[in-house]
């Protein structure tokens, strides 16, 4: 019987990626919402969930890594993880693997069954089981691969909880310092030095979307501000 391990040498086009991922999701017991399509694949690529495809001439070629990423994303999404959070986690760690819901299923064997011995929390029930006293996120690495350690969706949940802990600690510390926000406001800024004594600081994200009209309006605003006698005297 076929299993995920069989896909390790897989490669194909975007159409084949969609077909193969849908079949694999069905086999993993996650086929109910496996209505993956090309539009979604492109959306995941844009969000950074899917690694860039390899270009071969005009054609984009996808491999096992892409298949794994897209299946993991679909499973996590169905378990309630927001796409933004999945993308955030995938930015730091792409080596995530999805395990089947039914380890006894005759379609799962070898590699998959071996992994299923430590089933991840792919549902509320699985999460509950994983939260038993002393339970720790299993560290699973493929015995046949020299690739970086593979993470499970369980570890994804654990990492997310770690993030929650850090955020909670940050929140408390900020409150102790008298701040009323949960996260320090942070913005990416681009500095444009016009002269040695004159610089513009602009929100980088906004700068990327700045139209010519916006630029002209900024020019007028600067003129108005610099003509303001109170501002010129340094009185704000």
């Amino acid at each position: 019987m076929r299993n995920l391990d069989e896909y390790r040498d897989w490669q194909g086009t975007i159409d084949e990626l969609v077909d193969t991922a849908n079949i694999a999701l069905q086999r993993l017991g996650r086929g109910r919402n496996a209505d993956l399509n090309i539009r979604l694949v492109r959306d995941y690529a844009q969000r950074g969930i899917l690694s860039p495809a390899e270009r071969r001439g005009k054609e984009a070629v996808y491999r096992f890594q892409h298949l794994n990423e897209i299946i993991a994303a679909r499973v996590l999404l169905n378990d309630g993880w927001p796409l933004a959070k999945i993308a955030e986690q995938f930015q730091t760690d792409r080596n995530i693997v999805v395990l089947p819901i039914s380890p006894d299923d005759e379609m799962t064997s070898g590699f998959v069954k071996e992994m299923a011995a430590e089933a991840p929390p792919t549902s509320a029930e699985d999460l509950w089981k994983s939260l038993r006293m002393g339970a720790v996120a299993p560290s699973l690495s493929s015995p046949r691969s020299s690739a970086p350690p593979i993470r499970t969706t369980h570890e994804f949940a654990s990492r997310s909880m770690e993030t929650t802990t850090r955020r909670s600690s940050l929140h408390r510390s900020l409150r102790e310092l008298g701040a009323h926000w949960d996260h320090p406001p942070a913005t990416s800024v681009t500095r444009i030095q016009l002269t040695e004594w004159c610089e513009l600081l602009l929100d980088s994200d906004r700068l990327r979307r700045l139209s010519l009209e916006d630029a002209e309006a900024i020019g007028r605003a600067i003129t108005a501000a610099l003509s303001d006698p109170m501002l010129r005297k340094g009185k704000f």
């Binding site: 509320a124 999460l127 509950w128 909880m161 802990t165 909670s168």
Partner: peptide, 13 residues
Amino acid sequence: EEIANRVAAMAQA
């Protein structure tokens, strides 16, 4: 803190 994390995870679920 660890208990609260686990409670939060179950609330999410």
